[in-house]
């Protein structure tokens, strides 16, 4: 099967709270000086695609829509042995919303050819909208399942996949026909692998397709309807901090007793 994995580069979520800044426009995080990483659910999606290819064959294309810095992330995907990597590069004044991103990704997917599976992360660790996958499915006119944590195929049914998706109560087992859009969540089976050093070196020599919006027949004005549909009115860093009462006592037993009394008071309130 042909798989398209959509990857997003985000501000490193491990950035400590004290180093987190808002940009001068007050509309997004300040990326200067902060590390950029592949969004974790995108890494889970990529790992899911790699495992699927190992079992069932096929080709993986990794795509990112973002600024020039996203090339580094796509090199990492190449180091993990994706077959093709594509960067759709555009520097926006403000972060494009998921509606705009989905339209660009859909145009890219159509230009690249037919994909049986299009994978995205379930949400991103920056704005966390969790919408790109669903919107992309609508742009492409395909069914969509989200919070997927397992994909299997049966060679006797080449157009079907067996999907496990998480639900609030447990999980659903679903049989679906390709083409499909799936948003991937994490579980213990899709922890991202580490690239081999040799593959990392190789990745820098491999071709990486770079497109601009105009290569897709798009520009900012043709995306204006999407781009203007949301507006960040305000972005603030919450300052609320609770004063913690550390339980004191001469011995650990005494402190444990002190804690137990407070817990009982809360539980019985």
């Amino acid at each position: 099967m042909n798989i398209l994995v959509c990857l997003k580069q985000i501000l490193d979520p491990e950035l400590p709270v004290r180093d987190f800044r808002i940009d001068s426009a007050g509309r997004d995080a300040d990326r200067r000086g902060a590390g950029l990483v592949m969004n974790i659910f995108c890494a889970n999606a990529l790992e899911t695609a790699l495992q699927f290819r190992e079992k069932h064959g096929g080709k993986i294309t990794a795509i990112a829509f973002g600024s020039a810095s996203a090339e580094e992330m796509l090199r990492k995907a190449l180091a993990l042995r994706v077959d093709t990597a594509v960067l759709v590069k555009h520097e926006f004044a403000h972060r494009p919303n998921p509606l705009a991103v989905a339209r660009v990704l859909a145009a890219s997917a159509r230009k690249l050819g037919d994909f049986d599976l299009v994978l995205t992360g379930r949400e991103s660790g920056d704005w966390g909208d969790g919408q790109t996958g669903g919107l992309l499915a609508e742009e492409l006119g395909r069914p969509c399942l989200s919070f997927v944590d397992g994909i299997k195929a049966d060679p006797s049914q080449p157009t079907d996949v067996q999907i496990r998706r998480q639900t609030d109560e447990g999980s659903d087992a679903i049989e679906a026909s390709v083409p499909l859009v799936l948003t991937i969540t994490n579980n213990e089976h899709n922890v991202p692998r580490i690239a081999k050093t040799r593959d990392v070196m190789q990745a820098f020599k491999q071709p990486l397709t770079q497109w601009s919006l105009s290569d897709l027949g798009l520009d900012e004005s043709s995306l204006a309807d999407e781009l203007s549909s949301t507006e960040i009115i305000e972005l603030t860093i919450p300052t609320k901090q609770t004063k913690c009462e550390f339980i004191t006592g001469d011995s650990l037993d005494e402190r444990i007793e002190g804690l137990a009394k407070r817990i009982v008071a809360v539980v019985q309130s």
Binding site: A29, W127, L235, I237
Partner: peptide, 8 residues
């Protein structure tokens, strides 16, 4: 947003 670091 940003994992609870900011409010939008």
């Amino acid at each position: 947003v940003y994992g609870g670091k900011a409010l939008a």
